[in-house]
């Protein structure tokens, strides 16, 4: 070991204060995983659909008797796009320590999220798609839309936790990191739906 044998003392001391934006960074990694999860699902969906259409030219990938209408998914897409605006309203109000606007924007954003869950339930009933052993599309569509529903619930829960911490704090901006992290996950959620909307419902 020679000249480097003894350990250091004063010259190099470890850090005490952590860097900021821990929640945003952590949520960024979680969001990357979420994107790859849906990327994996959509990859299987697109490759299976392409294989089916290649093997059965002229046939419909969606089983006969199933109504996959564009109205409900488009309304959901617009609902989520609006929620992007209200979510940024939450972040902006939190940054300015504006408790009243933070609360209003949070409630509106959460209502949009709940509306998406309601619209998904309506769409399931309207489609009448069953996993009956005959269609490859059925398990894939339910896996993707069901996973998305779970993501909406997780994003709502995360938003609720961060909102509670923010609104109960002396100054909301203290928890800007948490609110920004919840907003990041929310935006990723909206982006994922737009891909689903185009990939599954628009192009069918």
């Amino acid at each position: 070991m020679s000249e480097h044998a003894a350990p250091a003392t004063e010259m190099v001391a470890p850090a005490i204060a952590p860097r900021r934006r821990t929640l945003q960074v952590g949520t960024g990694f979680a969001s990357a995983a979420v994107l790859m999860y849906f990327g994996g699902l959509l990859g299987v969906y697109f490759s299976e659909r392409a294989d089916f259409l290649r093997a059965n030219p002229g046939e419909s990938w969606i089983p006969s008797g199933v109504r996959v209408e564009l109205t409900a998914p488009t309304v959901m897409a617009w609902t989520l796009l609006l929620s992007v605006v209200t979510m940024q309203w939450v972040v902006h109000a939190t940054k300015r320590d504006d408790r009243r606007h933070t609360l209003i924007a949070l409630v509106v954003t959460a209502m949009f999220g709940v509306a998406v869950i309601n619209q998904t339930a309506f769409q399931y009933r309207q489609m009448g798609l069953t996993i009956d052993g005959g269609s490859l599309a059925a398990p894939l569509i339910y896996t993707i839309s069901g996973s998305y529903l779970a993501l909406v619930v997780v994003a709502l829960g995360y938003l609720f936790v961060m909102a509670t911490r923010t609104l109960t704090a002396t100054a909301p901006s203290v928890h800007l990191d948490g609110i920004s992290a919840a907003a990041m996950l929310w935006h990723v959620m909206v982006f994922v739906y737009l891909v689903i909307w185009v990939g599954i419902f628009v192009t069918k």
Binding site: A33, V34, M36, Y37, F38, G39, G40, L41, G43, V44, I131, D132, G133, A138, P139, L140, Y142, T143, G146, S147
Partner: peptide
């Protein structure tokens, strides 16, 4: 590995059918 989880969830949903 999230792609692996996606594989597992697709299999699970498929198995839930008749």
């Amino acid at each position: 590995l999230p792609v692996l989880v996606a594989n597992l969830v697709v299999m699970w949903i498929d198995l839930r059918g008749p």
